[in-house]
Design a protein around this nucleic acid. Structure first.
Lengths: 141, 141
DNA sequence: ATAAATGCAAATAGTTTGCATGCCC
DNA sequence: GGGCATGCAAACTATTTGCATTTAT
């Protein structure tokens, strides 16, 4: 076995390529979500010939394969992060600071949805907006 | 007083126009969120000369004025709905059916966030995805 | 060898902007 | 009448697609 991601792809008849490796490694090291543009810029440092089309295609592909996760944050654009532990985001609408929220906190809410609506919730990712402690003191609501 | 929305705009030095009235009326009658494109198409039936630029400008303006609310749903595009009661959405990822979720259900979650993170949450709108009761029987997870 | 993946370039979708004209108050 | 708002057209951003070439297996 070469590495888990490579094996995962090969077992499905797909290939591991330098471009895919670079994107995975960028997301692993980022430790936070990145936009396609941010990813593209970092890619060019490792692979100068890489194009935006490849970034988008690769992100879609890796999402299908479950290796990365897309998330909606403000301004309606998708951002991506490495698929590891389940969590959600809390974003400060004043300073933009992002915090992770563990999935467990949402479990009881999902439970209530299930009971009152019959829906089986499977949102992988939800983003909440608010004011972080620091900004609550400086920003006028 | 002519109507509440008109008064609201005039009191701020803005004007009520046929275009704004049509968009507000479309959103009131829709009873659900609509995309800019859907709004544009319905506008043209009432005001054939209307352009997409005006739709976008008007939606941004009405959002600033608090008369309509933007919401993120799947695929990263913004949709709009009339500003009335606070609620959230539950969308079936199989059939696309949308259900409203009362804001009260999220209050206790917000409370927990507040305690454990210090954030003051003010998300006006959160969308959850899942499977509606009907689709749970027909769709393979 | 062969099918998958990339690079390149062009196309598409969604949204925003500048500017002259029109129209609400 | 004065200034806000619209229509028109063009610009812009983000993303997708077709096709020839390259490359992982």
């Amino acid at each position: 076995m070469i590495n888990p991601s490579t094996d995962r792809l090969r077992s499905q008849g797909y290939r591991m390529t330098p471009q895919r490796l670079v994107i995975l490694s960028i997301l692993e090291n980022a430790g936070r979500h990145l936009s396609p543009q941010e990813i593209f810029e970092r890619c060019r440092q490792a692979l100068p010939g890489m194009t935006e089309a490849t970034v988008y295609r690769t992100l879609n592909f890796l999402t299908e394969q479950g290796l990365v996760l897309p998330a909606h944050i403000g301004s309606g654009q998708l951002v991506y992060e490495i698929a590891s532990h389940e969590h959600h985001h809390l974003i400060c609408r004043a300073c933009g600071e992002t915090r992770e929220v563990d999935h467990a906190l949402l479990q009881s809410l999902y439970q209530q949805f299930q009971v009152s609506t019959g829906y089986r919730i499977d949102s992988m990712h939800v983003t909440f907006f608010g004011l972080c402690p620091a900004c609550q003191n400086t920003v006028v609501a």
